[in-house]
Design a protein around this nucleic acid. Structure first.
Length: 416
RNA sequence: GUGGGCGUAGCUCAGCUGGUAGAGCUCCUGGUUGUGGUCCAGGUGGUCGUGGGUUCGAGUCCCAUCGCUCACCCCA
């Protein structure tokens, strides 16, 4: 039990897990790259104001989940809690509006939120995200949704469901919120005490209460989807049309809300029943107002983010290729160390995956170790002047070679 | 922040109504006086999360505390 542990909510990525994550990264690269999305990385921390303005002052994230610190010079910085605002900041900072629109970007980065950790929820976590900035089209939204579906599919995320909705414009949302709040207050008798206490804080929550009476009352509640302005309704209909044409199944969920303030129009979320309480594996939507909110000119944009840990939790076994070792250089005696060292170095220079004995094992121990790391060949280096025992670990055959012909022999790959 | 479960070797765990620590796996060494995968033997490795208390004696009982974990909330 060591005195110092990884901080609460953080974890070490050990080699076995690192291999699975590498597979995921490769899949993301392939799926998003194929659609013309280019990789972007932004700083791990940003000006606190970016998130206060971009994510929304009223959100849980900004109110209680940010790691904020002073940089020593009176500037307030924050470990990024999400990726969309930073990408938009970069879009503005580098004048990407002059590029062909939309600018399509993706990232795989770590994020930080001071929440109570549980299964699938950490204080440092990783997300794959994609953003298309500069297009208002429903095609953009539908394409993004299909790309995320594709990614989840190729990674093998199980029991995936897609929930879809539209939030309309911020104005529509504000009006609807008032209407819903008024409805809830007018029907407090039929609502559970928890829901009532939360009416002004989070009225949408009333929709997914388990309480029977609350559920009955909510059947008559107004729905945001029914209040969409004509243009928004038309946009949403087009998104659905495209998803239908692509045979992407989804559930229409008028109660779907996303945690960040900047969303407008299309919103969606993929959930996996293979997970526990934190079932959302990825989600996103359209955020037409964000760029303007950050000081740019009005720019439509759309995007999503998916949790790496959650995708991996919900995925079955990923086929992880074993790392092959071409050559293990053993030493027959301590005097052979220099010769072995030189041979291993040369072998790597020649492009081989070569390892050498580093732990002072007995020769028997070295062979056993070579076997465990999966070495195809073992060179047993003798003292200066003597030859090298060259052993094929599959057949067990062994011959004597001169040291300088060992590498060529491995490259040729011939069995003995 | 609140509630449930759990904290014994690197890992997975055993340890009954209290008698001062075990197994399997891993790792190392030897059996093969310079050679792998099986087998056999041996060894390394633990302030039983921490601090108090009860007791002749506590891994085992009591209290506190810390940590992990699941859930609420919220979200990736």
């Amino acid at each position: 039990m060591s005195a110092i542990q990884a901080p609460r909510g953080t974890f070490d990525v050990l080699p076995a897990d690192a291999a699975r994550r590498a597979v995921l990264e490769d899949r993301a690269h392939r799926v998003l790259g194929a659609a013309g999305y280019a990789r972007i990385e932004t700083p791990t921390f940003e000006a606190t104001e970016l998130f206060a303005r971009g994510v929304g002052e009223s959100t849980d994230i900004v109110q209680k989940e940010m790691y904020t610190f002073d940089d020593g010079g009176g500037r307030s910085l924050t470990l990024r809690p999400e990726g969309t605002a930073p990408v938009c900041r970069a879009y503005l900072e580098h004048g990407m509006h002059k590029l062909a629109q939309p600018v399509k970007l993706w990232y795989l980065s770590s994020f930080y939120r001071a929440e109570a950790p549980q299964r699938g929820r950490y204080r440092q976590f990783w997300q794959v995200g994609a953003e298309a900035i500069g297009s208002p089209s429903a095609e953009t939204d539908a394409e993004l949704i299909l790309l995320l579906a594709e990614l989840l599919g190729t990674v093998g995320v199980r029991e995936v469901r897609l929930r879809l909705s539209s939030l309309g414009t911020p104005a529509t949302r504000a009006e609807y919120r008032e209407e819903l709040t008024a409805f809830l207050h007018a029907h407090e008798d039929g609502l559970s005490p928890e829901v009532v206490s939360r009416i002004d804080l989070n009225p949408m929550r009333a929709f997914d209460a388990d309480d029977r009476s609350t559920a009955a009352t909510m059947r008559d509640a107004p729905l945001l989807l029914d209040r969409l302005a004509p243009a928004d309704a038309e946009h949403f209909a087009r998104v659905r049309e495209l998803l239908d044409a692509a045979e992407q199944p989804y559930e229409l969920d008028p109660t779907l809300v996303r945690g960040l303030d900047y969303y407008a129009r299309t919103v969606f979320e993929f959930a996996s029943d293979a997970l526990g309480a934190q079932s959302g594996v990825g989600g996103g939507g359209r955020y037409d107002g964000l760029i303007e909110q950050l000081g740019g000119s009005p720019t439509p944009a759309s995007g999503w983010a998916a949790g790496v840990e959650r995708m991996l939790l919900a995925a079955g076994d990923l086929p992880v290729a074993a790392e092959a070792v071409d050559l293990f250089v053993a030493q027959a005696a301590p005097e052979a160390a220099s010769g072995a060292f030189a041979l291993a170095h040369e072998a790597r220079h020649a492009g081989l995956r070569a390892q050498m004995e580093l732990a002072g094992r007995s020769l028997k121990g070295q062979l056993r170790h070579a076997d465990r790391v999966g070495a195809r060949y073992v060179a047993i280096v003798g003292p200066p002047g003597e030859g090298v025992g060259f052993r094929d670990m599959e057949s067990g055959d062994q011959t004597e070679l001169e040291a300088r012909s060992v590498i060529a022999r491995v490259l040729r790959g011939s069995s003995l």
